[in-house]
Design a protein around this nucleic acid. Structure first.
Lengths: 346, 346
DNA sequence: GGAGCGAGTGGGAGCGCTCCCATGTCTGTC
DNA sequence: GACAGACATGGGAGCGCTCCCACTCGCTCC
């Protein structure tokens, strides 16, 4: 185990010398060995092994103009509001996929508006080959930053804007929010429930919009008194539930647009002595295990593969970069399926 | 807003030409402008502005051998077990501090033993100037990896091993766990409590060890029936509490080594109809706001500045890198203070 | 048996930057 | 008013790699 003096790492030159070939040939071997005769390949490989050669990344990037790194941009609010099982799972999926492709993950946390400058500078600096970001509000400056910086970007969650004329279509990965909501409401109807209330998320998030659309797909003549708006938090779910019960004490089912709100709603139902699911059936969304399985009764909910979404985001981006190089078009966005998970609350 | 053709970004050469100076002078200005006369500085700055010049990071790294990036290594279990308010806060602190020093954050998530190879290769590859990692178990391969790769590393939480002879002392940032525990127990004693139980964490984590030591500092003749071991999770806290009550129904206070376990304990106390704090006073540790403020009654707990710890880790590392360059010794580890936060549970 | 061809290999330029060193310029000093 | 000395600037090498191009083989084919 030679303890390397820092800064004295062996170069390709050294490998080539040891293997008795030219630097060019050594380079070919290190990069896959195509078009080099077997014995030479072996000799170079052995030299690499003996010298513990590791390519200098900066030198490689300098000439190839590819960094082998991808930025993950995350706005600070998200890291908190989602109280993370959501985000951390997605990040994990991303990390796995990137690792499998020897691509590094550079994390950019946006703390406030002032940070966008820093982000813009970074992305424009050619430090990364692409970026992954999460679903944003309409006025978010990020899309225009990445576009101007020419950095291919894949979004998690359907963005609320669409590409302008002549622009590349926005690439994203999202769950089938609408379909999942449809399934949930349909299931409640199948149980014989007739006054199905809805606790929605903030209307500036497309996932909330899509879930509401799904609800409406089934309950075409929706009674507005059965709809309340929350903010995807436990507290807001409780508030919305109280509001709904005050307005419509006769409701017999609730579909909440995420599990956190469902758990808040459940708390209120219990406080008021309303048995779940006997009198009011309750369905959530997301299937966050730390929430949906922990409530009493456990939540029936719509499951989405969060980690899988992360993987797909990374895969979509990497594939797009690959295609950019080969001149093909970028791949399309992906909608991942959702499934209804039956537990005790409905 | 010139939409740059990718790959046609202006170089220092171009800036120099436009400002009518040499590349060397342009470089000096870009790197702070020391020893360049004012009018030239201005001219170069203007050229930079006009051309929207952004230095090529790879080229710079190639010659300076500094990457301007730091790795944050995190083992997958942590990301879940702590259910993250803890980790995400620390990460946030790190991110802020690094951003303030124009240093990038490369996130390395270790999924399993097989990943250590990848991590080792990455760290040895000179992709980063340093690394930040989190407190580990005795047999963790990471320390030996970073040492062999010659990557300066700062740990979050006191590591359970110490440096061998002749090795650099291990640098870390940790809360004053022992002092915090002392304060908590002392506080309970001040309330007149006499049979103060302890719910501890896993003994292979130094934070758990240190907190137990603090407890023992005050309760010198500890009764072993008053001590139970948990695993820093809600469930394990509940289990430990039940165990303690079975053994010692007469206990009048509990100090739990973290808030999650305290909330588990609280649940059990409530289930058994034991009033808190009247019959049993309860103190937690960490002051995780999502937990400590959300329980009923809210937890009295020992607060540690988690985000601040993250900042300090980054600062320690950056300062160490600076000193390496100037030839000074690396700075010492840091212990951050804890404070007792009084709420209703004790 | 010689021209033609393709595959394998090496030479060398150059990616964009920093930094050493030589050169030039302007002070201050006797 | 000439000379050292400090300071400012430019020229140029070189960081480690990839990739273009030219070259040399060993074959096939007529």
């Amino acid at each position: 185990m030679p303890e390397q003096h820092p800064g004295s790492r062996p170069t390709l030159e050294a490998v080539a010398a040891r293997a008795g070939v030219s630097r060019a040939t050594a380079s070919r071997v290190v990069n896959g060995g195509d078009g080099v005769r077997k014995p030479l390949v072996d000799r170079v490989r052995q030299a690499v092994e003996e010298l513990q050669y590791i390519p200098n990344h900066a030198a490689r990037t300098l000439v190839t103009r590819r960094t082998g790194a991808v930025a993950v941009v995350i706005a600070e609010p998200e890291i908190r509001i989602f109280s993370d099982p959501f985000f951390s799972l997605q990040l994990r999926g991303i990390s796995k996929e990137l690792a499998a492709h020897d691509t590094q993950l550079v994390l950019l946390i946006v703390e406030g508006p002032a940070d966008f400058d820093r982000i813009a500078r970074y992305l424009s600096g050619g430090h990364v080959d692409g970026a992954l970001a999460f679903s944003l509000h309409t006025d978010d400056p990020l899309p225009s930053i990445t576009r101007r910086a020419g950095v291919p970007t894949v979004y998690g969650g359907r963005p609320s804007w669409t590409a302008g004329p002549g622009e590349q279509a926005v690439q994203y990965v999202d769950a089938d929010n609408r379909g999942g909501a449809r399934a949930a409401v349909q299931y409640l109807r199948g149980l014989g429930r007739e006054r199905i209330a809805y606790i929605g998320g903030p209307p500036d998030q497309t996932s909330a919009v899509d879930r509401l659309d799904g609800y409406r797909d089934i309950l075409v003549e929706t009674d507005p008194t059965l709809i309340a708006e929350g903010a995807f938090t436990v507290e807001s779910g409780a508030r919305a539930m109280a509001e709904l019960l005050d307005r419509r004490p006769d409701l017999d089912a609730v579909f909440a647009a995420n599990d956190l709100m469902a758990s808040g709603a459940l708390r209120v139902l219990r406080e008021r002595g309303i048995p779940v699911p006997e009198q009011v059936a309750l369905v959530g969304f997301d299937d966050m295990d730390t929430v949906a399985e922990a409530t009493d009764p456990p939540l029936t909910t719509v499951r989405q593969e969060i980690e899988g979404q992360g993987r797909l985001m990374a895969r979509l981006l990497l594939r797009g970069l690959e295609k950019d190089r080969t001149g093909a078009g970028r791949p399309d966005s992906v909608i991942t399926p959702t499934t209804l998970v039956r537990r005790a609350s409905a």
